[in-house]
Design a binder for these strands. Structure first.
Lengths: 130, 130
DNA sequence: TTTTGTGCAAATCGTTTGCACCGTT
DNA sequence: AACGGTGCAAACGATTTGCACAAAA
């Protein structure tokens, strides 16, 4: 995946060491759900030299470039999702873990009269315990 | 609405001045969507003597008692909803304003095989701009 | 009087920022 | 060389906490 550099360039992001390294961690597997804190821990574990500030910067940069999606589940941490396709989420409360739901498996009908304006996003989070 | 004291008592919450006063602000109108900051501002405007800490405490107490619901829309502020019935939300991004959606008007089908465990909550937020 | 709540200021936690330095172009 | 990115530590904003004082039981 060294052509991740090209992906970065095509999004007007300089392919710096940190962005490439974090990109490998993020996009090495499919459909990752991650917080800044977890990404920093993984970086440290891999002995990558990245500061906390850069982790936050890179997550913001990737989000701005459309490489990551944001998910709001709890009040505190911000979650990022490497799956930027339209989809929904199951949040496993015990494990604090996010799981994707294929939107084809869900049927949501919203009457037009409720949505005056442009629908920017439809977030569905099913919270499950046990 | 002085029998709000009884509501508090029935939820094992002492009817203190602050709780009663904040309760009037919160439940004086139906279907309010509010943050701690806004509630504090309203209290100040009404010349109620409530500290910031107490506003947070009372919101937590009311939430714990089931008198308020929480809504996660953005990363920072926590929103509380006086409508604790099951329902969904439209978030008007320009106005930073929440609007309830009657669940009867929305049809969501979630296949059982996706939801192993107990469904604790189904949050649907439609984000609208312009 | 015992228990629980309140107020203030300090602490906490996730995230952002200022600025000197370094890497990419 | 010029620009943008990184790292650190300090700043920030929402929320919480510790503790002395006050109100409810």
């Amino acid at each position: 995946m060294s052509d991740f550099k090209d992906i970065l360039r095509s999004h007007n992001l300089r392919p710096t060491q940190q962005r490439v390294n974090l990109g490998k961690l993020l996009f090495g597997k499919l459909d990752r759900h991650i917080t800044a804190e977890i990404l920093k821990q993984e970086s440290d574990y891999e002995n990558l030299k990245v500061s906390k500030a850069t982790v936050y910067n890179v997550l913001n940069d990737f989000y701005g470039a459309g490489l990551l999606a944001k998910v709001n589940i709890d009040d505190d941490k911000t979650w990022y999702d490497t799956n930027v396709q339209h989809h929904y989420h199951i949040f496993l409360e015990n494990k604090s873990e996010l799981v994707d739901i294929d939107p084809k498996k869900i049927d949501i009908k919203i009457p037009k009269e409720l949505t005056k304006g442009t629908i920017k996003k439809v977030d569905l989070v099913v919270k499950i315990s046990e």
